[in-house]
């Protein structure tokens, strides 16, 4: 028996919930709530140490890397620049638009708010233009916070969000983080031609 297309109600509700949060307490507060929630999620994962960068890459390949477990496999583009083929929110957005034609109102304001300089986006090296939708405020800080639990050769790592691409193909670049990491913007642009998300991994020490 064909049951037809079934939507994941949890996803749909989450998208609508963001809209409600924006309406009830404003985009800034909603942004803060989503970021805090992501950071709390990251608190719950165990710390892990990879002996080498190669081992870290292998863990991505084997899907055992904590970051891979939340967003899928990213690929190393060279010089510590990574590209992520699919946005983890892609299926939810696609489903939502199929039914309701467009994303909820207020999402644009939220995205602008996320890209504004702030202490928290500075701390996790996200936003600053790299946000293309409200989902970036969940995904980007979560990835950065997960990275704080990872060591490579016993050394701390940081993740810098360099850019992101929306479902419509519009690219967002974090000039601040591109400059700080020294990753060439044209490389980021090129990575985003074939990926939805681009980030930089820095190993300390």
């Amino acid at each position: 028996m064909n049951e037809g297309k079934i939507l994941d109600i949890a996803h749909i509700s989450f998208l609508d919930m963001i809209k409600i949060m924006i309406t009830l307490s404003g985009a800034a507060s909603a942004k803060g709530t989503l970021i805090r929630n992501s950071l709390k999620t990251a608190e719950r994962i165990a710390e892990v140490n990879y002996a080498s960068f190669q081992e870290y890459l292998s863990a991505i390949e084997n899907a055992t890397n904590p970051i891979t477990m939340i967003e899928g496999k990213s690929s190393h583009q060279g010089d510590f620049v990574f590209g992520l083929k699919s946005c983890p929110f892609g299926p939810s957005i696609k489903n939502y638009i199929e039914v309701f034609e467009k994303l909820p109102d207020g999402f644009a304001d939220f995205t602008t708010e996320f890209n504004k300089p702030s202490n928290i986006t500075d701390q996790y090296r996200v936003g600053e233009g790299a946000g293309v939708s409200p989902f970036c405020s969940v995904h980007q800080p979560m990835r950065s916070a997960f990275a704080e639990k990872i060591r490579i050769g016993g050394k701390k790592i940081h993740i810098y969000q360099l850019g992101c691409k929306s479902g419509s193909g519009k690219k967002g670049f974090a000039e601040k983080w591109i400059k700080e990491t020294g990753a060439p913007k044209d490389v980021v642009d090129k990575v985003l031609d074939n990926h939805m998300c681009c980030y930089y991994l820095k190993i300390f020490g």
Binding site: S25, G26, A28, S29, G32, T33, R36
Partner: peptide, 30 residues
């Protein structure tokens, strides 16, 4: 900050200012 993250505070011992920031952000926004 309007995002609910604390910028600075002075509080009597026992008050969780980080939590105040998060909760107050919703109250203020509302």
């Amino acid at each position: 900050g309007r995002d609910g993250f604390l910028l600075d505070s002075i509080a009597r011992t026992g008050i969780d200012t980080e939590m105040i920031g998060a909760i107050a952000s919703s109250g203020f926004g509302a």
